[in-house]
């Protein structure tokens, strides 16, 4: 029982960070039909921006995180949209898929060449004290990670449904032509989506790097997990990405303990295939019309 609680808590904590990446993924898909294969690298990179701030500019941790956020918004948000996504949108999804694959490679190799190939320790934001709850050891870091990601996603949901800008963003995602006619600046709304994705990636990066260390190759697994979480939950729902992320986190930890460490990575994939076979729109997703 104690073991189970322990697994559940750490699974949920990891899952909530996956959910951050998955939510960004679904947002980009909705707003611009971009399947971002570089999403994992988007989560890997901000940690290095923060490290640059700490080690080379001599900033304290919090200003360095702010510096990292600014750089991410600029590079992963504005530059990504202006230089890569925008010119390619008229050509359909496929060239964009290839370009994001190449972008992921570019980011990964650049970090490896210009910062270092070894895993870098990342300063912890939350105290790592461990509490004893009913015989299970639960770390404060996990609880804080869970709380921060939930707050971020909850805040985002509120922003999208309660504010005027948020509703405009939803409208542009659902039907850009009609939104444009009704006076919504669709291009600006899409830009906001990219900024939000960059911000979510930064939060996820800062939360996950103290646990897994900052390494150039972190993006490979993170990207795949975010991808699976988004599809399992439902590609067109923020709630779906949240549920998918949490589910993957818990299943991942459960299978590492109870099934086999070797096939740990296979469980989320099997879940993905099962979901596509049985409920292709995802657990919480709504059906989209057939493409043909």
């Amino acid at each position: 029982m104690a073991e189970l609680i322990q697994i559940l808590v750490s699974g949920l904590a990891a899952g909530s960070i996956y959910a951050l990446a998955a939510v960004g993924f679904t947002l980009l898909w909705q707003a611009s039909q971009t399947i971002n294969f570089a999403q994992g690298e988007f989560v890997m990179l901000p940690a290095f921006f923060v490290l640059v701030g700490v080690h080379f500019l001599g900033l304290p941790l919090w200003p360095a995180i702010f510096f990292g956020l600014l750089l991410s918004l600029l590079i992963l948000g504005v530059a990504f949209k202006r230089l890569i996504v925008e010119p390619m949108l008229p050509h359909g999804t496929l060239p964009l898929v290839i370009a994001t694959i190449a972008l992921g490679l570019l980011l990964k190799e650049s970090v490896k060449e210009f910062y270092g190939a070894t895993a870098q320790p990342f300063p912890a934001i939350f105290p790592q004290t461990v509490y004893n709850v009913m015989g299970a050891s639960v770390s404060l870091q996990d609880i804080c990670n869970l709380a921060v990601s939930m707050l971020a996603i909850g805040g985002l949901q509120l922003f999208l449904s309660r504010t005027r800008t948020g509703r405009c963003m939803q409208a542009s995602a659902q039907n850009p032509a009609v939104a444009e006619i009704l006076g919504v600046n669709v291009k600006r709304m899409v830009l906001y989506t990219f900024l939000i994705n960059a911000a979510l990636a930064t939060i996820a990066s800062v939360l996950i790097s103290p646990i897994y260390l900052a390494k150039f190759s972190n993006g490979e697994t993170l990207g795949l997990v975010a991808f699976i979480a988004a599809i399992v939950g439902g590609f067109n729902q923020i709630r779906g990405a949240l549920v998918g992320g949490l589910l993957i986190g818990v299943i991942d930890n459960l299978s590492a303990v109870y099934i086999s460490a070797e096939y740990r990575a296979a469980m989320p994939l099997l879940l993905l295939i099962a979901i596509i076979l049985l409920r292709p729109q995802g657990l919480l997703g709504t059906k989209e019309g057939r493409s043909v």
């Binding site: 890569i84 010119p87 390619m88 359909g92 496929l94 964009l96 290839i98 370009a99 972008l103 490679l105």
Partner: peptide
């Protein structure tokens, strides 16, 4: 790095 940058440029200008 050069290689992936070339691919991105190629995709932008000639899908």
């Amino acid at each position: 790095i050069i290689y992936s940058a070339l691919v991105i440029v190629l995709m932008v200008f000639s899908p």
